[in-house]
Design a protein around this nucleic acid. Structure first.
Length: 545
RNA sequence: GGCCCGGUGGUCAAGCGGUUAAGACUCCGCCCUUUCACGGCGGCAUCACGGGUUCGAGUCCCGUCCGGGUCACCA
């Protein structure tokens, strides 16, 4: 036994550079966080490959929610251990998308090459020394060994296994490098051939382990028995090893990730155990899905195929963050809709979000539902809030609209106040990008005049029009011009005997609406006319005749 | 193929052995309404299938089928 340990120490010394810190030193440098009981530490750990979709953001959103509701910490870590996929600055896109989406981080990566927080570095490529410390410790305990198999060797191995109809992988009898003698290992090392560092797994696939997942509950899975690669030939860790080391040292309590990681849970459990770490709690959440137009089936939301689901595209379209957030919570916990109805004005953070209430299978990204949620969210805003947010959006994406809006703020706010602030607010705006189209007639620059087929209506109305009329007087006048022109002032009367009339009040007000706004569909006409003012009303009506 | 996870209306879903199987979105009717909306009411489910267990089963068990994931020096 001691003999073995001595060998292991010699092997470790031959593999690793000298002067490495000890695990204890890292432990001391990243102490357990002094957070109150129950506070959750969560992290979002994407690989830096550019922008994010709503689906990607789903896990980050859960992370943020959990940290918020528990008084914990949420940070951003970069998993840039795959140098083959490196694409320059893949960081800024992610940071920008998160910021645009309204997801703040407490610590971690803040931009290309910048970060803040006491548990860094938060970029894996800068943590090499730390990984090597722990890798060395594993080697010293005989729990890891260098593997000199080349990519070709491994291909051959897989072929053999395929032929034999047996599970593929580096395990059991197939582990060529596992039982090399120290002298053989040293000789290989000395020759300078590339090698990886593999785990000497004590697992036995015929045994079961029980792991707990916060979404799915208790899971029975086979023990992990593969000698996975811990350190690649370039000395950079694989995801699995980095996950264990980082989440332990960064004192993460809850790992929220896509359910594609479920299968590696036994490996991770083993890694934490062998490293002597307390494992975090896990929640594997299903990815957001999309109905595939070609196959007709569900498939994971993809950056490439679903550009409309990219965070940048959603923000550009003008969905308010609050709407995006509410939509996501609706997807996460369906009980949210009931809660929201009961607490229309409560902040989202007050919602008792529960991982257990999440559906284990993937939900479809539903743009219509998003639109509806967004309309409701916006309908509950005050005119001032709508103005501020719409203007901020327009400043970024539609400068012409921005100048129209800000030209006369009081006017714009008056426009946005129509049918708003009452118990049944109008639900017309789903995204700021619709504002230009929806409210165009309030601005002469955007107004598109339309000819009205019944000019006599306009003529008659112009004679009685008084901009100072209150709503009842206004409405009475509309009715008063109906009959002389052959229109029925009362809808029910009209319906009882439609043939004796040319139409009813709806046609009369419709003609006026068309002349004044160029639309068939607008908010309350009386209010619209008050806002745009007498001059415009008269001018447009005359023009429409 | 091995292992794992799922399967309640077009969509998101409640439900956890006894319910007329909630609710939301979409769609379609109707009602309310000066218009446009909002809102209200109604319609839209053989709970994947087949066997059990039970007085009784979306709800528990087994099998089948279907969907997804995973088996990399990618994450």
């Amino acid at each position: 036994m001691t003999e073995n340990l001595v060998s292991a120490a010699r092997l470790a010394a031959a593999i690793f550079e000298s002067g490495l810190k000890s695990p204890a030193e890292w432990e001391a440098r990243f102490p357990v966080r002094g957070l109150p009981e129950g506070a959750m530490v969560t992290r979002f750990a994407p690989s830096p490959t550019g922008f994010l979709t709503l689906g990607n953001l789903l896990t980050a959103f859960v992370d943020r929610l959990l940290a918020n509701t528990s008084g914990g910490v949420f940070f951003l870590r970069l998993e840039d251990t795959d140098k083959k996929r490196e694409t320059g600055d893949g960081v800024s896109g992610i940071v920008n998308d998160m910021a645009a989406f309204g997801l703040a981080i407490d610590e971690g990566v803040t931009g290309f090459g910048t970060e803040r927080g006491a548990y860094g570095p938060y970029t894996q490529s800068h943590r090499r020394e730390i990984y090597h410390t722990y890798a060395k410790a594993l080697v010293e305990q005989g729990l890891a060994y260098p593997c000199f198999c080349s990519a070709d060797d491994l291909d051959k191995l897989r072929n053999e296994q395929e032929q034999a109809g047996v599970n593929k992988g580096y395990y059991g009898q197939w582990t060529k490098c596992r039982n090399l003698s120290l002298d053989e290992q040293l000789a290989h090392l000395k020759s300078g051939e590339p090698y990886t560092l593999r785990l000497r797994s004590p697992g036995d696939a015929s045994r079961k382990i029980f792991v707990n997942d916060l979404v799915r509950g208790k899971l029975e899975l086979p023990e992990y028995d593969m000698d996975v690669v811990l350190l690649k030939a370039d000395g950079i860790p694989t995801y699995h090893f980095a996950h264990a080391v980082d989440d332990h040292l960064m004192r993460v309590t809850h790992v929220i990730r896509g359910d594609e990681w479920l299968a590696s849970l036994p490996l991770h459990a083993q890694l934490f155990y062998l490293l002597g770490f307390k494992p975090p709690k896990y929640a594997h959440i299903a990815p957001m899905m999309k109905l595939d137009a070609e196959t007709g089936g569900k498939r994971k939301l993809s950056k490439r195929k679903d550009p409309e689901a990219a965070v940048g595209a959603l923000v550009r379209a003008g969905y308010p963050n609050a709407a995006l957030h509410e939509y996501l919570v609706t997807l996460l916990n369906s009980s949210f809709e009931d809660w929201r109805r009961a607490n229309p004005d409560a902040p989202l953070a007050k919602f008792p979000f529960s991982l257990k209430k999440m559906q284990p299978s993937g939900a479809l990204f539903d743009l219509q539902k998003l639109e509806d949620v967004s309309k409701t969210v916006i309908s509950r805003m005050t005119a001032e809030q709508v103005y501020a947010q719409a203007l901020a959006w327009a400043n970024a994406f539609d400068p012409d609209l921005a100048s129209l809006l800000s030209n006369d703020p009081a006017y714009s706010i008056a426009m946005l106040s129509i049918d708003r602030g009452n118990k049944k607010p109008r639900k017309d705006i789903a995204r700021w990008g619709q504002l230009r189209e929806l409210y165009s007639y309030f601005y002469d620059e955007l107004f598109e005049p339309r000819l009205v087929s019944a000019p006599e209506i306009l003529q008659a109305y112009l004679e009685v029009y008084d901009p100072n009329d209150d709503k009842d007087a206004w409405f009475a006048k509309i009715k008063s011009i109906c009959e002389p022109l052959g229109y029925c002032p009362d809808v029910k009367t009209y319906k009882a005997d439609p043939d004796t009339w040319k139409g009813h009040v709806s046609d009369v007000s419709g003609a006026i609406r068309m002349a004044v706004t160029g639309r068939e569909n607008t908010p309350d006409l009386w209010a619209v006319m008050r806002v745009i003012g007498e001059a415009r009303v008269r001018g447009r009506m005359e023009e429409a005749m």
